[in-house]
Simulated assay, not measured.
Amino acid sequence: MLLGATAVALVPWMVLLVRTLPASTEVRNWQVAWVGLDVLMAAGCAATAVLGFRRNPHARLTASATAAVAVLDAWFDITTAQPGAALVQALACAVAEAGLACACVYLALSMAHAVCEGPG
């Protein structure tokens, strides 16, 4: 119920943002923001690999989170890229990140299926 209400409440908020946010802005700590996303993605990959190797069912959670971070990274890469070579590079990275996200979702779903079935 709370999630549904939140989804509805976010619609007018998004309209407000579209109408009031500037088209461009100068950002401090730009490198920290970008490297931070990559650190999260690397940590998620590492945690998923370690937990998966140990056959720990929590690996499905880290895989899910890593998929979300990969999609976010791709979104910000594309939407903040300048036209031309930077956009082409962002799109190429987004393809790789989409592949990572798909692999993580597959792992999360296959692990959840295995957990539901239990030992053979």
Results as ranks from 00 to 15, higher is better:
35 V>S: 06
35 V>Y: 04
35 V>I: 01
36 G>A: 01
36 G>R: 01
38 D>V: 07
38 D>M: 09
38 D>I: 05
38 D>G: 06
39 V>S: 02
39 V>T: 03
39 V>L: 01
39 V>Y: 03
39 V>C: 00
40 L>D: 06
40 L>Q: 11
41 M>P: 02
42 A>I: 10
44 G>H: 03
44 G>L: 01
44 G>Q: 03
44 G>K: 04
45 C>Y: 04
45 C>T: 03
45 C>W: 06
45 C>H: 11
46 A>V: 12
46 A>T: 11
47 A>G: 06
47 A>R: 00
47 A>M: 06
47 A>T: 09
47 A>V: 04
47 A>C: 08
48 T>I: 09
48 T>P: 01
48 T>Q: 11
49 A>Y: 13
50 V>Q: 05
50 V>K: 04
51 L>T: 14
52 G>L: 10
52 G>R: 08
53 F>H: 14
54 R>C: 10
55 R>F: 02
55 R>D: 15
55 R>S: 15
56 N>G: 06
56 N>F: 09
56 N>R: 01
56 N>M: 02
57 P>N: 07
57 P>K: 12
57 P>S: 07
57 P>Y: 07
58 H>C: 13
59 A>L: 09
60 R>K: 08
61 L>W: 00
61 L>V: 08
61 L>S: 08
62 T>G: 11
62 T>P: 08
62 T>S: 07
63 A>R: 11
64 S>V: 13
64 S>L: 09
64 S>H: 04
64 S>G: 12
65 A>G: 12
66 T>H: 06
67 A>Q: 09
68 A>H: 03
69 V>C: 02
69 V>K: 05
69 V>A: 03
70 A>L: 13
70 A>Q: 13
70 A>F: 13
70 A>V: 05
72 L>I: 03
73 D>G: 00
74 A>E: 06
74 A>L: 04
74 A>H: 02
75 W>P: 04
75 W>Q: 08
75 W>S: 04
76 F>S: 03
76 F>K: 03
76 F>A: 08
77 D>A: 08
77 D>E: 07
78 I>L: 02
78 I>F: 00
79 T>Y: 14
81 A>P: 08
81 A>R: 00
81 A>G: 12
83 P>E: 14
83 P>H: 11
83 P>G: 04
84 G>A: 12
84 G>K: 09
85 A>I: 07
85 A>W: 00
85 A>L: 05
86 A>Y: 05
86 A>M: 04
86 A>T: 13
87 L>H: 02
87 L>F: 01
87 L>I: 04
87 L>S: 02
87 L>T: 02
88 V>Y: 06
88 V>E: 13
89 Q>G: 08
89 Q>C: 10
90 A>K: 00
90 A>N: 08
91 L>D: 07
91 L>K: 11
93 C>V: 07
93 C>T: 14
94 A>F: 05
94 A>P: 02
94 A>H: 06
94 A>I: 07
95 V>T: 11
95 V>C: 05
95 V>Q: 11
96 A>K: 14
96 A>G: 05
96 A>F: 11
97 E>C: 12
97 E>R: 07
98 A>L: 08
99 G>Y: 05
99 G>P: 10
101 A>E: 13
102 C>T: 14
102 C>K: 12
102 C>H: 14
102 C>R: 14
103 A>T: 15
104 C>V: 02
104 C>R: 08
104 C>Y: 01
105 V>S: 12
105 V>D: 05
